[in-house]
Design a binder for these strands. Structure first.
Lengths: 112, 112
DNA sequence: TCCAATAGTATCCTTTTACATACTATATAT
DNA sequence: ATATATAGTATGTAAAAGGATACTATTGGA
């Protein structure tokens, strides 16, 4: 265990999951296999196109998802989870399990 | 699995771990048991007093750590992990394990 | 009487995230 | 010729997170 946050191993895993929509995008792709841009946009209620593109690009840069472009008109782009992305599943699972067991939702969130 | 990030269970666990120094503070308290403010300050190289207090207060609000004030002069305050805080250990462990296995540190980070 | 030690506050500033809204390119079908 | 569908860009703003630096209260001991 080291001193600076960047040297903390936990920080490495955490940092690639941080982003308002990243975990949920990963979860969807993990369970759906493949989704088109528009499909994701419809699913992630409230996300702006800019934000969606941004989150997808960052996940892609990390090698967690794959972006497949079909050269058609109108355009078609499919996103899918990579094998590497799949390695995050145990982490997401442990968080999901923890939340189910322990998290009493806070008042400020009940209204959303 | 739901649509808005706040409804995603993973988000609950994630959100309480997010904060530049939170995971590392939790890890230290988990392994050391109890630490004084100044001890944490010395350990977390580069943290400002404001930031340290802020992170500690947020962890305390979540019930993850306990703050024990000794009414002495000079002041003495001890921080310790709570039982509830300890429930996060499996998550931190899974992240640590993942990082050890998979994370090839990126170039931009090697210089820090 | 003044200093040291501890656990913070107070203020101001910079950087990073996220949100809102409007706009674009292009082949096909009408 | 024009509208359509899709996957984005562009631009500007607001909110949250984090950083730098200086300051405070207390009191037992020199």
């Amino acid at each position: 265990m080291n001193i600076k946050p960047e040297y903390c191993k936990v920080h490495d895993a955490l940092s690639i999951l941080v982003g308002k929509w990243k975990p949920i995008i990963l979860l969807y792709l993990m369970s759906e296999g493949t989704m088109r841009y528009g499909e994701l946009k419809k699913t992630l209620v409230g996300i702006t196109p800019k934000m969606l593109t941004n989150q997808l690009r960052e996940l892609e840069e990390e090698g967690l998802i794959h972006r497949e472009v079909y050269r058609e008109v109108p355009p078609k782009v499919e996103y899918s989870i990579t094998e590497y992305g799949m390695t995050l599943k145990p982490i997401l699972d442990s968080m999901h399990e923890w939340s189910m067991k322990h998290k009493k939702r806070k008042l400020k969130n009940t209204m959303d």
